[in-house]
Nucleic acid binder design. Structure first.
Lengths: 345, 345
DNA sequence: GGTAGTTGATGTAACGTTTTACCTGGCATA
DNA sequence: TATGCCAGGTAAAACGTTACATCAACTACC
């Protein structure tokens, strides 16, 4: 009762050998129904929980999967985590989340500690500026890994991402079709590949329609930053009548900025977001955005990492899921009244 | 190069014994500078990472801490995670997050897998309806644990929480002072202790000021639910002119509901939230709320769990942090004009 | 030159599992 | 009676570390 029970404790109590208890706990080997019951019974009363470290070490197996993400405090990511966690747990894995706040050195330390215990697999959003050595580390340790969102230029891993360029192209086309000719791109922090791809799609349409040079404005992906960035953007480029955003948070912030300036989103200036987070639908006014289901993305990730664990030698694959345009109230024709936007519901 | 390097690999390569390598890696024992350099060098080139399972098993130590939370997709919780993670990592621990989505059975499974590997400690928000056995499990395994927010009636653990009753009392008093006489309470799901405490503080003031019986309305803590709940609440109780909310998400939802109905928050109906999440400041109109810094709360949690790990036999303690009233634009005098709320900036 | 102390390095039992090969009876068959 | 076989169970060697005791080689001192 005093010490933590181990196999031997249960074995002694049940009057059998440790090997027998081990087999019973795992449902392996040939054990008579009678002893099985007895062992299970004593294990329960002792509150016995097998030591995962010892088990994993000896068997070379592990049911723990990590999710190293750049930012946990983001509704989109939270949904992804939910999706991945749901699927993994039904498959008998445990998902633990590591939040690096997009700091590569920090993520490196986390991964090292994580790898140290030889887990089953990893879903990985490489932090900004992840060096090749980190990738090398994963490869040396043969950890089944899937990169997500960003692949940091590494081709060693399975990858699940979003058709970024196509998505922003669709968004930009939508705005151009409405008649906008001065369209800016807002958001995304330092030069990550995701942002690059999204700017690429945006620029492509600008070029195709001959709408002048791209106007790209930086901003971290949260509302407060969105408000500030949008304010400055409009001050610097008053000619802009439409904005494609790198994320819904920043888009909602931009929309708020307009309201604060006495302008009406979708009327004076149009905005299209990216992600379709829950808040997008509920924002005032509701946000037009590029939707991709984060929950499904999470499930996809889980499936890919499980496949990789089961078949370590399969050739690596990349899955890019498309985004869908959802038109709500923040995108409309330029400088034309289209009715009150505020009447709601 | 092919297999995962272990202590022995490094030892052979460097021409020393495994014991020496082990000591070098941990900075323990007496090792000459010369061999130290050599060992470190070969370890680096081999990409050697010590096996945490073996180390932890043999030494009985572990630097991994778990955070079992009820809902990761909540800005308040996300901030708590950030705070805890920041402090723990500077102390050399790794924090991994387990999201149970407030499902007790699911959390039980997670905790079992977690405990199985004998981690260093646990920060625990018990899921709704956690049975005593789960607590028993933690106790049997002597896992240093701190409960957070809810203590599920267990007195075996350190606890960090919020002065819930006092906070809602302050909020209710604030509204009463402004002249409101029909004040409702909105939000909080099933009968958790947190909600009970908050309702208690609210009811206390109602009784003190003789403002009639409590009007309590249920709602999950997210915006969409807040919109719906507020709409129904006002339909059922049109006399209500002020609402104390169980969380900012639901409060912002309530505020949105008012706007959608053509009412002005803080003018027609006053609202006070709880948590002071980032969105509270930025909402339209900015939300009056009870502030408690989730980031600091996270750091506090980390400190408590580390103390508990270092001194397993200290008597358990409870820390309740106070909340501070922040008056923004959603709370004002009843039925009196106090100027435009929308002018922003 | 003998004793003691110090420095640097090593051999080897643990830690709690899983796995493999190996026992033991008992029963059926020849 | 002897042979083979099978169901049910066990002993013991791993897995990769750490901790402890031990050892060899020097230095220092009387």
């Amino acid at each position: 009762m005093v010490g933590k029970p181990k196999l031997e404790t249960v074995a002694r109590e049940a009057g059998v050998s440790v090997a027998t208890v081990s087999q019973v706990m795992r449902g392996a080997g040939r054990i008579s129904e009678k002893t099985r019951k007895k062992v299970l019974q004593t294990a329960k009363t002792l509150n016995y929980v097998p030591d995962g470290r010892a088990a994993s070490m000896r068997s070379g197996q592990n049911r723990e999967i990590g999710l190293a993400i750049h930012q946990i405090a983001n509704p989109f990511n939270a949904e992804v985590i939910s999706g991945a966690s749901d699927l993994l747990e039904t498959e008998g894995y445990l998902l633990s989340v590591l939040d690096a706040r997009d700091d590569a050195a920090r993520q490196r330390r986390q991964l090292e500690a994580f790898i140290g215990s030889s887990r089953a697999g990893l879903i990985w959003v490489p932090a900004q500026g992840t060096p090749t050595e980190t990738c090398e580390l994963l490869r040396t340790h043969k950890l089944p890994a899937v990169t997500f969102l960003r692949n940091a230029g590494f081709t060693d891993f399975d990858h699940v991402g979003i058709q970024n360029a196509d998505a922003t192209a669709i968004a930009t086309e939508h705005l151009a079709d409405l008649g906008h000719t001065k369209i800016a791109f807002l958001g995304g922090t330092s030069p990550v590949d995701v942002r690059k791809e999204r700017i690429e799609g945006y620029s492509r349409i600008l070029a195709e329609r001959q709408l002048g040079p791209p106007i790209v404005w930086d901003s971290p992906d949260d509302k407060l930053s969105g408000v500030n960035a949008m304010t400055k953007l409009l001050k610097a480029h008053p000619e802009v009548t439409a904005v494609v955003c790198n994320g819904d948070m920043v888009a909602i912030g931009a929309s708020l900025a307009l309201t604060q300036m006495g302008l009406t989103p979708g009327l004076d200036v149009s905005i299209v977001g990216f992600d379709d987070i829950q808040d997008a639908e509920i924002a005032m006014p509701p946000l037009s955005t590029m939707a991709v289901s984060p929950y499904e993305l999470g499930r996809k990730l889980a499936r890919v990492v499980i496949e990789r664990i089961k078949h370590p030698d399969m050739p690596v694959a990349t899955t890019l899921v498309p985004a869908k345009l959802i038109v709500r109230n923040t995108s409309g024709e330029p400088l034309k009244s289209k009715g009150a936007l505020r009447q709601g519901s």
